[in-house]
């Protein structure tokens, strides 16, 4: 228990060391989750549009000549 308390105290720098690691975790994990969720949403949106009107696939494919719309 004492060793744990000592570890958490970080030689009285705990108030600076732990926020550093917690902030890093929050930022990195948060950005990863947000990116993943964004990708899922876009995948769902594109799938829904394709399902709604399958002939639209042709229209989207014609846009791919500009090299930016096709998967």
């Amino acid at each position: 228990m004492d060793r744990m308390a000592e570890f958490l105290a970080m030689g009285n720098y705990g108030g600076y060391v732990w926020p550093t690691y917690i902030l890093a975790a929050v930022i990195l994990v948060g950005l990863a989750i947000q990116s993943r969720r964004w990708l899922r949403n876009e995948e769902r949106a594109v799938r829904a549009m394709e399902a709604e009107a399958p002939h639209r696939r042709a229209a989207a494919a014609s846009g791919s000549a500009r090299g930016e719309t096709a998967r």
């Binding site: 990863a32 990116s35 995948e43 549009m49 719309t69």
Partner: peptide, 29 residues
């Protein structure tokens, strides 16, 4: 980590562009 997240975001951006192109094609038609 940078590589992994950038790849995910690139895929999302490409899909977003595709959705936009499909929506515009729909409006024009």
């Amino acid at each position: 980590y940078f590589g992994a997240v950038v790849l995910v975001r690139m895929k999302a951006l490409l899909l977003a562009r595709r959705a936009r192109a499909m929506a515009m094609a729909q409006v024009h038609r």
